[in-house]
């Protein structure tokens, strides 16, 4: 079998493992696994390993980091989400695995999107032939993964809020308390914001080299600025006495919607308005 054949095989296998993990995480959320959430973590890790192998094989085949088209970005984005989630799960000492029920389906969505896209490895057009591509897209993956995690935490925030009002005891033990959710979400967004700032700055430096301007109000640029502003508002809301938790969670959700629009919407819904990407 060719390298590409193996890559496809590993990619598909990781998809099914993530699917299984998502299913088990959801069972765990409803307390059906009897506290054995580890059943969900195992396929998630196995999926991640196979997925990593697929990405490495693709890098070998392409002779560069696999960062240059929609499929490759979606692929690595999904990988980043899983890594971010598993880091979180570990840092909570595996006490709140049910939280995976909020994150793994997002991974599946992104992988599902990736599988709709053309996967052929094509050589880079002249504007993309730059060392900045790796830094720019690499930081974008980190930023987007962190924002996805924060989005999942915001959803968990609202679920937990509702569970507290309705006294759904089974959920209360599965989802961290609101202050902890809020805190984790802040950490994820702070990290994501730092990375997104790097994405925008490296993108501007690259755009100057390739096109002769740092900033050109291209839809992609504009939407990433809007995303960045929304997360800046999020960071400030936490200093404001009148607004907090819920408002912050809403902004996290709106910010993530902007992330998705910057990434997918601009390409799909605003075609013909921009000349590249």
């Amino acid at each position: 079998m060719t390298i590409v054949g193996w890559e496809t095989l590993f990619f598909s296998a990781s998809f099914y493992l993530y699917l299984l993990a998502a299913f088990l995480y959801i069972l765990d959320l409803f307390n059906i696994l009897g506290g054995r959430g580890g059943y969900a973590t195992v396929p998630a890790y196995c999926g991640l390993i196979l997925h990593s192998v697929a990405i490495i094989l693709r890098s070998i085949e392409a002779g560069r980091a696999p960062f240059s088209n929609q499929f490759e970005f979606a692929n690595v984005f999904a990988w980043g989400i899983v890594v971010a989630y598993l880091v979180l799960e570990r840092s909570l000492r595996f006490r709140y695995r049910a939280f995976g029920a909020f994150i793994m389906p997002l991974t599946l969505l992104i992988i599902g999107y990736a599988s709709l896209l053309p996967r052929d490895i094509r050589p880079l057009m002249p504007a993309l032939q730059s060392g900045w591509l790796t830094v720019h897209v690499g930081t974008a993956i980190l930023a987007y993964s962190a924002f996805t995690l924060a989005f999942g935490l915001a959803i968990a925030y609202f679920v937990r809020d509702r569970a507290e009002q309705k006294q759904w005891a089974f959920l209360l033990s599965r989802i961290p308390a609101l202050p902890l959710l809020d805190h984790l979400s802040h950490k994820a967004i702070a990290f994501g914001f730092f990375m997104l700032s790097l994405v925008i700055i490296t993108g501007a430096i690259w755009a100057e080299q390739a096109w002769g301007r740092f900033w050109g109000w291209d839809p992609k640029e504009t939407w990433s600025l809007a995303t960045w502003l929304i997360y800046a508002a999020y960071l400030h809301i936490r200093f404001s006495r009148n607004w907090q938790g819920r408002q912050a969670a809403w902004l996290s959700i709106i910010g993530f919607a902007c992330v998705l629009f910057t990434y997918i919407g601009v390409n799909v819904l605003l075609p013909g308005l921009h000349s590249y990407r």
Partner: peptide, 23 residues
């Protein structure tokens, strides 16, 4: 801070409005 947050969000919405027009 409220005013700052309001202005930032307004800037965000208005920036995005231009992305639906031809460049």
């Amino acid at each position: 801070m409220q005013c700052g947050i309001f202005l930032i969000l307004l800037l965000s919405v208005l920036s995005v409005s231009g992305s639906f027009l031809p460049h």
